[in-house]
Design a protein around this nucleic acid. Sequence first.
DNA 1: AATGAATGAGAGTTCATTCAT
DNA 2: CATGAATGAACTCTCATTCAT
Lengths: 200, 200, 200, 200
Amino acid sequence: MADPLTRTRQARRDDLIAATIRVINRDGLQAASLERIAAEAGTSKGTALYHFTSKEQLYSSVVDALFDSGRAYMTERVLAATATPRHQVEAYVESNLRFILDNVEHVVATQRIVQQQTGTVQIDDAIAPLRSLLEAGQQNGSFGDFDADFMAHSIRAVIDAAAYYLPEHPGLDGDHFIAEGVGLVLRAIDATDRPEARTR
Amino acid sequence: MADPLTRTRQARRDDLIAATIRVINRDGLQAASLERIAAEAGTSKGTALYHFTSKEQLYSSVVDALFDSGRAYMTERVLAATATPRHQVEAYVESNLRFILDNVEHVVATQRIVQQQTGTVQIDDAIAPLRSLLEAGQQNGSFGDFDADFMAHSIRAVIDAAAYYLPEHPGLDGDHFIAEGVGLVLRAIDATDRPEARTR
Amino acid sequence: MADPLTRTRQARRDDLIAATIRVINRDGLQAASLERIAAEAGTSKGTALYHFTSKEQLYSSVVDALFDSGRAYMTERVLAATATPRHQVEAYVESNLRFILDNVEHVVATQRIVQQQTGTVQIDDAIAPLRSLLEAGQQNGSFGDFDADFMAHSIRAVIDAAAYYLPEHPGLDGDHFIAEGVGLVLRAIDATDRPEARTR
Amino acid sequence: MADPLTRTRQARRDDLIAATIRVINRDGLQAASLERIAAEAGTSKGTALYHFTSKEQLYSSVVDALFDSGRAYMTERVLAATATPRHQVEAYVESNLRFILDNVEHVVATQRIVQQQTGTVQIDDAIAPLRSLLEAGQQNGSFGDFDADFMAHSIRAVIDAAAYYLPEHPGLDGDHFIAEGVGLVLRAIDATDRPEARTR
DNA sequence: AATGAATGAGAGTTCATTCAT
DNA sequence: CATGAATGAACTCTCATTCAT
């Protein structure tokens, strides 16, 4: 009653979302026609549009599904971190990279979809909280004197690039990968001339 | 004979390349049909294909034109730098960012084109030289103990993201922008000789 | 047994017919998809086809429902008229216009449906009785010397056009509207016994 | 130079317009898909859209072509008539019916197209001039005391219905047909009790 | 050297209809 | 009785490409 989506309906939607992710990763965004996606999901174009109204809505669902689970995953971990900006940034980067590690294909598909859209609108939503953390650390004295907005964009660039990095390095150790990303970011933001800022 | 391209021919090609860049930046890659590009160049679809054989070749020309001038610009400056890895990386990042600053639209158009293509083939060409510099610096002892391949990808991600950053920040001071990018990279790679830097 | 249609069944059919009329009037014939009609009736496409087998049959029901009640309404009034052709034509036009006045939406929907169908088959059914009345009046000497078939079509055209006229003139007085229509027709058919009437 | 349309282009456009008219008359509006129209014109869907941008524009061209020539034809004849409202209305109806007689298929196709469109917008354009003539004749005293707006709509209904009447009566004599239509209208509008109004 | 014209493959979308439940 | 789900045929439209001139 509280759930407007039938079990079957939700299942088909999930099938189609998964198929979309698979096709985009395997064949590229350009080759991801509704017909191909539907075939990958073992159904027809008509059925796909019965469940999603439009291709755009299917893509939105792919994106939203990722953002919803990603936000939940990261928020939990960032809030669990000791409430210093440095620990929070560390938790932010680490949880984001681990989430990517666990959802590479979904992340890559989402990035391809979002890139295609002209407006980089929602990216700003991703920038703001990170920039806040950085500014807090600067007022705190634990971070260096960088341009927080530029830094936030750069950190996001490093994290997002990691999704493309993974499929090209199949045997890569996940923890190593995460440690490298976290280390890079922390070195880039840490106050360099105040060693006491670093010891907790 | 040494010049297979008539002057007119080359001029038309340049017109079309410039038009392509303009259309992609203004209307997005998806809207960049041959017809629209040709209209922007003040000519017709037929003529565009007379000069370029295929749309793919037109796009390749856009990409190649950027890579050729970019490579020339950067190589000169990296070679002019003092022959320490650190100075060279600094010159690499600085010259790349300055080149982007001077050619934003061309860079953005190129990135959109390359992103669309499934194979991230030529990216590896851009990674190799940078990774070499980083490895040299590590053997040198002037850089920290990071994964050079991952770092090379991350530095490229930061630089490439800068091209998207610029159009969104119109009043931005170019030298500030470059200094921020260079600073970020140098902090990320420098030997810290302070092992306690990582809290984890 | 004498009543093959359950009361519920008949009620649902009426609901759907009413919904069809509403949708066609509000959104136009082209927008009248089964889905929209079903939604308007508060049910589903599947149910609509359960009650009507095909969309064509639903449309036929809309048309038939109108023709049945219209025929009943008019026949009664024509038969009640004094049995002169002139009084009968007058009763025909008047009752038809009054019926339209009382059932504008249903009439408009029906016309849209019938127009769409290639064959103007049933229109002839509507022409024949009117033509008979006209011919009777001509033999009678009370009508002029016009082409009865053409006149019958023209009178029907005037009456049918009235249905479209009404929605565009919301405040219109019904009796005035009917009087105008009746007057027009009577003047057109009456024996003029003034041969100079035509200047040509 | 003054003509933006090539001879070939105009020829193809005319072919397609003619094909559209033929298909609508033969198979009905619903069956008039772009593919069928193109096939009828001996070309392909792609070519049809190369010349017309959209199906809607093709239809508009069909409609406009008729209105342009019809307006020219009728205006000439109405202006040539003696400048009494009665002669002008007579010329209006006669020229319109003769135009229909000479262009039945084009007229029918146009009516089907216009009917399909929800808004009966341009119909009002057709009503206004006729209503003006009628009002002039009423002030003049040569016409009876009818509702001029309603009468204008009714006359148009009679004329428009004539287009559908013709194909159903193949052997019909044109002049008889026109005389019937003109006679009907004149009887409907003439002042009945002032015989002097009729003699010039 | 240039281009108007033509084309066909493929895209997303709509919709009446079938069917299992 | 009712309907959610599925489907396939048909539709309009876009676009890179070919070709005659």
